[in-house]
Simulated scan of single mutants.
Amino acid sequence: MMYETTALELSDGARTWLIERPIVIAVYVVVALVLRFVLHRIIDRATRDRPGGEPRLLKPLKERLPAGVRDDIAAQRRAQRARTIGSVLKSAVSIVTLTWCVLQILTVFSVNVAPLVASAGVVGVALGFGAQNLVRDFLTGMFMLLEDQYGVGDIIDVGDAVGTVETVGLRVTTIRDLGGTLWYCRNGEIARVGNMSQGHAVGVVELPIAHTTPVTRAAEVALRAALDAAGKDAIAESVLEAPELAGVSKVTPEAVTLRLTVQVKPGHQWAVERFVSQAVLVAFDEMGFAAPVPLLSGVLAPAAAE
């Protein structure tokens, strides 16, 4: 009778280890894989480009798309932003489902997971301190993407680099400057961003004239020439508001400087400044206004000594 009872207990233990627990483990693994697959498909659909519209993932997020940006640049900007945010969400889903599956499997083997969770927390803190720069880059990049501080095609100033954004990642942003150099800027090192492609830009034209030139007359000629230039086909589409004369901006021993401002589309201020400057200089030449002459210390020194 005792032998039969022992045999029955052994058979129950063997059944638990060979049948019940493997089935439970397999169920947990299948549930984790199915959950991960479904959530990844949902994220892929949310980040996928839609004809004539932005990805669904970006709908609840603010977007600061520059006015007048080309459709292809806008689509590329949205696609990269959605793709980067989607990759973060997919990684988070994979980590959560994998962690849940491992913890459930350990509980099947009657392992106390509380010390493991505590140890994992300590290891996470240690890794956080050791890789704090990397963590800071990722967190900063994530907030930049969520807030849409800049995107592909924007002209930005991050301090050490000024140029056009080519890629925006979680860790690194690449910027192509006017000289063609490609800058790799770590997101965590970007303390401030000046975006020249949002809203509108202002073209500022500085016009130096000689002290002998009538200031009022020169101002009238400059404003008339700027207004005529703003209506030309070359820059008419870039100009948002008519040029305004700000007046005399500074007076130096060499010249009196007039300042003109004109509100333009983002990224068009430099072309407009060049065009307006050329038009005003031509008008000054036609009026016979004298150009400012720089003072040479070597020439003035003898006269001052006399």
Rank of each mutant, 00 (worst) to 15 (best):
V102H: 04
Q104D: 08
Q104F: 10
I105T: 13
L106Y: 05
L106P: 00
V108R: 03
S110L: 12
N112V: 12
V113W: 11
A114P: 08
P115C: 13
V117E: 11
V117G: 08
A118M: 10
A118Y: 10
S119I: 10
V123G: 06
V123D: 01
G124A: 15
V125C: 10
V125E: 05
L127K: 07
F129V: 12
G130L: 15
A131P: 04
A131H: 14
Q132G: 08
N133R: 15
L134D: 12
D137T: 03
F138N: 13
F138T: 14
T140G: 02
G141V: 03
M142V: 10
M144N: 13
L145C: 04
L146P: 07
L146E: 12
L146R: 13
D148N: 12
Q149R: 15
G151D: 06
G151Q: 07
V152Y: 04
V152A: 06
D154K: 06
D154H: 14
D154T: 11
I155T: 15
I155Y: 13
D157R: 01
D157K: 02
D157E: 05
D157I: 04
V158R: 08
V162M: 13
G163S: 10
T164Y: 08
T164Q: 13
V165C: 06
V165E: 02
E166D: 14
G169I: 03
G169W: 06
L170P: 07
R171C: 10
R171H: 11
T174G: 05
I175G: 02
I175C: 06
I175E: 05
I175D: 00
D177K: 07
G179H: 08
G180F: 09
G180A: 09
G180C: 10
T181Y: 10
L182C: 04
L182V: 13
L182F: 00
W183R: 06
Y184C: 01
C185I: 12
C185N: 07
N187R: 03
N187E: 01
G188F: 02
G188E: 02
G188A: 02
G188C: 02
I190H: 00
V193M: 06
G194R: 04
G194E: 06
M196R: 12
S197K: 04
S197T: 07
Q198K: 05
G199V: 00
A201W: 00
A201Q: 04
V204C: 07
V204G: 07
V205W: 03
L207N: 01
P208N: 00
I209T: 03
A210I: 09
T212I: 12
T212D: 15
T213S: 12
P214H: 06
T216L: 08
T216I: 08
A218D: 01
A219M: 13
A219Y: 01
V221K: 01
L223K: 03
R224W: 04
R224T: 15
A225M: 03
A225D: 01
A226D: 02
L227F: 02
D228I: 07
A229F: 02
A230N: 07
A230L: 06
G231H: 11
K232H: 14
K232T: 15
K232P: 02
K232R: 15
D233K: 11
D233Y: 01
D233R: 15
A234H: 09
A236M: 08
V239H: 03
L240C: 02
L240N: 04
E241M: 12
A242M: 15
P243F: 04
E244G: 14
A246T: 12
